[in-house]
Simulated assay, not measured.
Amino acid sequence: MVEQSIWMQKVTADPGHSSWYIERFRSMARAGDDLAGEARLVDAMVPRHARILDAGCGPGRVGSQLAEAGHDVVGVDVDPALIEAAEQDHPGPLWMVGDLAELDLPAQGITTPFDAIVCAGNVMTFLAPSTRGEVLKRFRAHLAPGSRAVIGFAAGRGYEFSAFFEHAAAAALEPDLLLSTWDLRPYTDDSNFLVAVLRAA
């Protein structure tokens, strides 16, 4: 039995948490806020009509933007409420309920490797700590050789960047580019956010 994610612990403690999160991004979209920064970065990295996995897709904010850009998107999230919102608000991509620590899409008939994986929105810090290394190994298993995973999360959320780099190395994911923001500012030792572009070795 996989340890319950920090996200689902929050949902268990506060059954309204998912609805609050969904409405937060719906409100931002109505206000015209820029919600596509992560998708723009990933879109610039891949060929046209790429296969992209949105890992921890939430209500579909990033994956839907990539689908609108013409990519073949599969989104996976552990929270059924977020997947339901993604299906309602962003029809088109394949949205699936699933735990990233048990990710096995070939077993569900999705056998073609992905050209990229995007994992935005601090998803890595919402995983059960004991599963973080395994999640990165699962990412590697779903990538075509030489393809890349783009993972972003903030410091101070219980997952040190140094531990993340160790987990990535153990998963045969090698840093191609390290940034401190989704708008391409360089990563430094004192950065409080990390966007890691990791290549499947």
Rank of each mutant, 00 (worst) to 15 (best):
H142C: 05
E102L: 14
F164I: 04
R157K: 13
A128W: 04
V135W: 06
L94P: 07
D115E: 07
I110A: 13
V74H: 08
Q108S: 12
L103K: 09
A116E: 12
D77M: 06
A171D: 09
L82R: 03
R140N: 15
A67I: 02
G133L: 07
V74E: 00
G58K: 08
P145N: 08
L173C: 02
T188D: 13
A85W: 04
P59A: 14
W95L: 01
I110V: 14
Y159C: 00
L94V: 14
G121V: 10
H90W: 11
W182Y: 12
P91I: 14
G133R: 14
D54E: 07
R138D: 03
G152K: 01
P106W: 02
R132M: 11
H142R: 01
V76K: 04
T188N: 10
R140V: 14
L179S: 06
V97K: 08
E87Y: 12
A67W: 10
R148V: 08
D72G: 00
L178G: 02
A120H: 14
A116L: 11
G70H: 01
A171P: 02
R138K: 15
L82T: 03
M124A: 13
T112R: 15
S180F: 12
T111N: 08
G109K: 04
T111R: 15
D72E: 09
W95G: 04
S130V: 10
E160G: 11
F139N: 04
G98S: 00
S162M: 07
F165V: 02
D190I: 09
F114H: 05
C57V: 12
G152N: 04
P113E: 09
D176R: 14
D183R: 12
G152P: 02
D104N: 14
Q65C: 15
D115P: 02
A55R: 00
D89S: 10
G158P: 12
L177T: 10
H71T: 07
D190F: 12
A141P: 06
P106C: 02
T125L: 02
H167D: 14
E166I: 11
Y159K: 01
V97M: 09
A170I: 04
R132W: 11
D115S: 05
V76M: 06
L173M: 08
V150W: 09
D176Q: 11
V97Y: 10
G70N: 00
R61W: 02
G63N: 07
G60V: 01
P91K: 12
E134K: 08
G75E: 01
V150G: 04
R148K: 15
R140P: 15
F161H: 11
V62E: 08
A169Y: 14
G152T: 05
A171M: 11
L53C: 03
S147K: 08
G58Q: 05
V150Q: 08
E174K: 15
L173P: 05
S64R: 06
L136M: 07
A169R: 10
G56E: 12
